[in-house]
Amino acid sequence: MGFPQFTEQEKALIRLCQTDLPLCENPFEKIAQQLQVSEEWVIEKLRAWKQDGKLKKFRAILFHQKAGYQANGMSVWNVPEDKIEPIGVEIAGFDEVSHCYQRLQLPGFNFNLYAMIHGQSKQEVEDIVRNISKTIGVTDYQILYSLHEYKKTSMKYFVPEIESAEEKNSR
């Protein structure tokens, strides 16, 4: 590996941005100070990355369970191959759907479209899914509820510990 498209300084900026933004009036200046660069360099770099899609955005991520969304269900759909495109777009249009991906089918699990549904209760999730089913005209689906969250974190990019932790793990 190597990621030649990033300088060491840029990787350091990415490392800092994926932790917590300093909660002060001028957070980007704080980051710049840590990297010993100017605030302008940081802001220009981040805007350029946002422009070309490397950076999605800066925003708050919530603990959803505590913010009133008690239930999340992964709905999986068996959609005819030639209808995946329009149906994927249609499902994506529902407000209660956070992610909608086409995936390959598994042995004994013929579902090819996955949509994460968020609701206040299991009942609400079921109602939403029934509504989607009616709208898209697909009845072959399942809802896989999360019974337990074992891990939920953000990927940390350009952190050398990632590989070394795994090496240790393999011994």
Binding site: T19, L55, K56, K57, F58, A60, I61, S154, Y157
Partner: peptide, 13 residues
Amino acid sequence: IIRRVGGSFNSDK
């Protein structure tokens, strides 16, 4: 309530 305020990057990109 808030887990984190920060940047999210696009894995693929």
